[in-house]
Amino acid sequence: MDGLYVEGITKTYGSARVVDNISFHASQGKILGLLGPNGAGKTTILRMIMGITAPDRGAVFFRHGSVQTKGVPLTEIGYLPEERGLYKEARVMNILLFLAGLKDVPRGEAKRRALQWLRKFDLEGYADKKVEQLSKGMAQKVQFTAAVLHEPKFVVLDEPFSGLDPVSQDVFKAEIKALANAGAAVLLSSHQMNIVEELCDEIFLIYKGREVVQGDLHSIKERYGNLRVDVLTPTGQKPLVDSSLVESGRQLDATRYRYILREGVQPVQFVHSLPADLPVHELVISRPSLHDIFVQVAQGGVEHAEHLEDSPLGNYA
């Protein structure tokens, strides 16, 4: 199958193993999300894919049609690094043309596409502005444009949503989806699981350099996330529930209770089991979020969640 293959890559800095035997496959036409907290090893993995650092063990392959390369196909790949930047004194269009030129896009074609992208991002009229005149969000849009202007078959985006407002996040999501629909294999990393879980066709959860779980969102939730029911009663009266359907239950606040259903229990079964005279104001039955699953699988407890988000950045030197 076409796409990007990562096979058993491992990277050690000093005594710290920051990436430990990671394997995955990003197919063309699909979006793969590499998700995990800060310092999980995401950027190191992407840098190894880009050939910027070399893995101690393992390999990265790129396959497109009958062509399979071990080295990075420099003109076929688009990369948005975590370290954001553009030449400050240069003008937007000149930078885009220069970078597209390095990817062998003919000048006229590059200019046409650049204008098209600037229009998409509401940046018409900024082509001749200097980068230092742009806001941070605008600059990020220009960087994104630079990464995909040559219509790459492989797209690697390191934290594409960080620093963006919700509206711009939606614009980016739509464009990333469009790239995949156009046939590119998209690999993106993020520590904000709630933003990307719906966007990704495939998800790879990583923690402390190790794989936590991978698969499509639905099957991960099927596998790890038992249904969860939040019940809100006006008086705070504790509902009497059938303990054969429920794995656990606890009070969230004065009026709300949360139950985790046993595996295989259907929502309807649970609703029928509730007493007919129970005064229910709200009833929410849902799968847990990816973040909850991550915490559950990686850490086995909610109490570590705060600590997890604050863990320091990896050391790349």
């Binding site: 880009m50 910027i52 990075v72 420099l74 003109t75 790949i77 688009g78 990369y79 690094p81 370290e83 954001r84 930047g85 553009l86 030449y87 400050k88 970078l99 390095l102 990817k103 960087q143 630079a146 990464a147």
Partner: peptide
């Protein structure tokens, strides 16, 4: 130095 200051090294090195 400028290439590093402007954080452009990685982008350029993903092309050449």
């Amino acid at each position: 130095l400028q290439e590093k200051r402007d954080r452009m090294a990685e982008v350029v090195l993903s092309s050449i």
